[in-house]
Design a protein around this nucleic acid. Structure first.
Lengths: 121, 121
DNA sequence: CGGAATCCTAAAGGATACTG
DNA sequence: CAGTATCCTTTAGGATTCCG
C-alpha cells in the first residue's frame, strides 16, 4: 500500500505548482482547443479568441514543460508548428471540458447572482 | 429546442468571466476546503495554507458575488462568520476536486517532464 | 475574529517591432 | 508562420496597520 503524500493545500507541496498550471483560464482554453486534435500555432490563436501572441507562446511553453502538450516543428517555409496534447495532457481534456461546460451552463445563474449582489452592496 | 449560445472561446462571451473565476487555483482550493461543509474564515485560512488574508477575502467576495459561496454572520463577540458552498457551488465540488486529484496524482510525472525539458533547453 | 484600508512588489498580460 | 525581444500597463498578491 502506497501512502498519498501530496497535498495541494500544503503551501510548499510541489503539487500546488501543478494545480496552479491547470487551474488557469488560458490553460483550460488551450487544452480545450487541442482536445479535437493537433493544431498549429496560428489555429490555436484563432480558436482561443483574444489571447495575445506572447501569452499563447508563454502558456504553450509552460504546458510543454509540464508534459501536457507536445510541440512538433516541420521543416517547411513558411514554418509550420503543430501542438498536440500528450497522453498526460489528454487526461485533462475531460476535467477541463467540464469546467468549460459549467461556465457556459451556469452563466445566467451567475449573472443573476452578480446583479443581486451588486444591488445589495 | 434551445440553442447553446455561450462559448468561452469567444473573447466577449460573458461565460469567459465565469470560467476565469472557477479556473483559478485559489478558487479551486477554497471550494475544496468548503466541500466537507461550512467553515469559518479562520479555518479556511488555516486549511488553504499560504493564502494571505487579503486574497482570501477578495476571493471569497468574488465567489459570493458569483453565487458560489454564501456568507453567514453570527452576532457574537468575537465575531463568527461562516462560509459555505451554495447549491450552485456544490456542483463545482467534484470538478475542482478532480483537478486537485489530478495535480496530486500526476506530480511525479510533471516533475520529470520539467526536469527533462530544462535539460534539453 | 473578521475584516477594511493602505501601500507596495511581483507577476500577468498586451503592443509593437523585428527575424529565420 | 512562428516565433523573440523589448517595453509598457494592469492585475494579482502580500505585508502591515487599524477597527467594530
Amino acid at each position: 500500500m502506497e501512502k498519498v503524500s501530496w497535498n495541494v493545500l500544503t503551501s510548499t507541496c510541489p503539487s500546488r505548482t501543478s494545480l496552479a498550471r491547470i487551474a488557469n483560464k488560458w490553460t483550460a482554453m488551450i487544452v480545450i482547443a487541442l482536445s479535437d486534435g493537433p493544431l498549429r500555432f496560428k489555429d490555436i490563436h484563432l480558436t482561443v479568441q483574444g489571447i495575445s501572441g506572447k501569452v499563447l507562446t508563454d502558456t504553450l511553453r509552460a504546458l510543454e514543460r509540464d508534459g501536457i502538450v507536445s510541440r512538433r516543428v516541420y521543416a517547411e517555409i513558411p514554418p509550420r508548428v503543430e501542438y498536440q496534447l500528450t497522453a498526460l495532457g489528454e487526461t485533462l481534456s475531460t476535467p477541463l471540458g467540464v469546467l468549460r461546460s459549467w461556465a457556459e451552463a451556469h452563466i445566467e445563474e451567475v449573472l443573476e447572482a452578480r446583479e443581486a449582489y451588486d444591488l445589495r452592496s
